[in-house]
C-alpha cells in the first residue's frame, strides 16, 4: 500500500559517528549490511555498496539475484531486515520526500485514463521543487505526446513517460529498474540518448538491467549481484579482468585429444569440436607458443579477450540460468508483497 515508511534512521540503528555522517554526505548512495529475507529465501544477503556522486552504475545479475529487492529498499518501498541506507546522507523516505531521488519502477503503472501531461503534471505538483512539466517531457523526448492518454501509448512510449515521471522532481539520484524492458531497438536507443543528456549534467544514476551491452556502453561502473550478494564491483574493464584471461581458438588438422591440450601451459579449460579447439587461457601467450610447438599445422588462430558477458557468466556462475534471464522474463524477482 501507499504507506511511506518514515523512519528517521535505518531500521538497524547504527550509531552515526561524525565520521560516518561525513561519509554519508559525501556519497550519493551508501548501503551497509543490507539484508532482506522472504521466508526461507535470503533475497538480499549483506549488500555493501557506495556510489559516488556523478557515477552511472549498472546493477547486473540473473533473475532472483536481489536487484529489485535492493532497489525497492533503496527507495523505501520495502523495509530491510537489517542494514543501513543513505541517499546523499538522507534516509530513503527523507530522500523521496525532498525529491533527491527519482525512480522508474519496473512495474510502476501509469494511469491509463489520464494524459501524459496530466500525469507528469500531477507528480510535479506533489513535489516541492519540480522541473517545469514541459521541460521534463522534453528531456524524456515525449513533448509531442503531452495530450495523449497513457493507455493509448506503446510500451516504449510508456517507458519514456515513466522516465519523465522519474525526472520531473529534478532528482540528484535517478534509479531505474529494468528501464528498457518492452522497448524495441529504436526506442531503446532514443531512451539512452535522453539518459546520456541527463547524466552529462553530473547526476548520479543507478540502473538495474539484464542487457549486458547496455551496462557495457552506458555505465561507468558495473555491480554484479548473485544470490543476494555483490559478487563483482568495478569498471567494465575491471570486471572483465576479474575473470582474467583470454580465449584461444584454433583449427587443428586431424583434431586433438582434449587432455593433451589441457596439459599445455596456461590453459585451464578445453573444448574440442571436430577440428576446432577452444582453449580458455590464463596465459594465452605461453599457451600459444606451446600449441604451435605441439601442433605446427594449427591455423586460423584467434585470441580474444573475455567479454562482459563471459565475465558475467563466470562470476554469476550459473550460465544455464542467466541464459533464461532474457528481457521478457521478469517473474523471478517479483517478491511476494
Amino acid at each position: 500500500m501507499t504507506g511511506q515508511i518514515r523512519t528517521r534512521s535505518g531500521p538497524a540503528q547504527h550509531g552515526t559517528a561524525p565520521a560516518e555522517a561525513a561519509e554519508d554526505r559525501g556519497a550519493a548512495v551508501r548501503l551497509t549490511g543490507l539484508r532482506k529475507r522472504y521466508g526461507q529465501l535470503a533475497a538480499v544477503d549483506g549488500v555493501e555498496l557506495t556510489i559516488a556522486p556523478g557515477e552511472v552504475v549498472a546493477l547486473l545479475g540473473p533473475n532472483g539475484a536481489g536487484k529489485s529487492t535492493t532497489v525497492d529498499m533503496l527507495l523505501g518501498l520495502t523495509t530491510p531486515d537489517a542494514g543501513r541506507i543513505r541517499i546523499f546522507g538522507q534516509t530513503p523516505s527523507a530522500a523521496v520526500g525532498s525529491g533527491t531521488v527519482g525512480a522508474m519502477l519496473q512495474n510502476g503503472a501509469l494511469l491509463a485514463d489520464v494524459t501524459v501531461g496530466e500525469i507528469v503534471g500531477l507528480v510535479a505538483a506533489l513535489h516541492r521543487t519540480p522541473l517545469p512539466v514541459a521541460e521534463a517531457l522534453r528531456r524524456a523526448g515525449i513533448a509531442d505526446l503531452a495530450g495523449r492518454r497513457c493507455g493509448t501509448l506503446s510500451g516504449g512510449q510508456q517507458q519514456r513517460v515513466r522516465f519523465a515521471v522519474a525526472l520531473v522532481c529534478d532528482p540528484d539520484l535517478l534509479v531505474l529498474d529494468e528501464p528498457t524492458v518492452a522497448m524495441d531497438v529504436t526506442s531503446r536507443r532514443q531512451f539512452w540518448q535522453a539518459m546520456r543528456a541527463y547524466t552529462d549534467t553530473g547526476r548520479t544514476v543507478l540502473f538495474a538491467t539484464h542487457y549486458l551491452e547496455e551496462a557495457e556502453e552506458y555505465a561507468d561502473r558495473v555491480v554484479l549481484m548473485r544470490a543476494g550478494r555483490v559478487v563483482a564491483d568495478g569498471s567494465v574493464a575491471q570486471v572483465r579482468a576479474a575473470v582474467a584471461g583470454r580465449t584461444l581458438r584454433a583449427v587443428l588438422p586431424g583434431g586433438a585429444r582434449p587432455d593433451r591440450l589441457l596439459a599445455l601451459p596456461g590453459v585451464n579449460r578445453v573444448d574440442v569440436r571436430a577440428e576446432t579447439a577452444t582453449l580458455a587461457c590464463t596465459d594465452s601467450d605461453a599457451a600459444l607458443r606451446a600449441l604451435l610447438a605441439a601442433f605446427p599445422l594449427a591455423h586460423d588462430i584467434e585470441i580474444t579477450a573475455v567479454g562482459l558477458e563471459d565475465a558475467f557468466h563466470a562470476l554469476t556462475g550459473r550460465p544455464d540460468q542467466t541464459d533464461q534471464a532474457g528481457p521478457t522474463d521478469q517473474t523471478g524477482e517479483d517478491q511476494p508483497r
Partner: peptide, 21 residues
C-alpha cells in the same frame, strides 16, 4: 490502483498515505 502498481509510483512522491486515502 494497488494492483497496477500506481500506488508504488505515488509512494515515490511526498504524498503521504493518509493524504492519499
Amino acid at each position: 490502483e494497488r494492483g497496477t502498481g500506481w500506488q508504488r509510483q505515488l509512494r515515490l512522491t511526498p504524498l503521504s498515505s493518509t493524504a492519499y486515502l
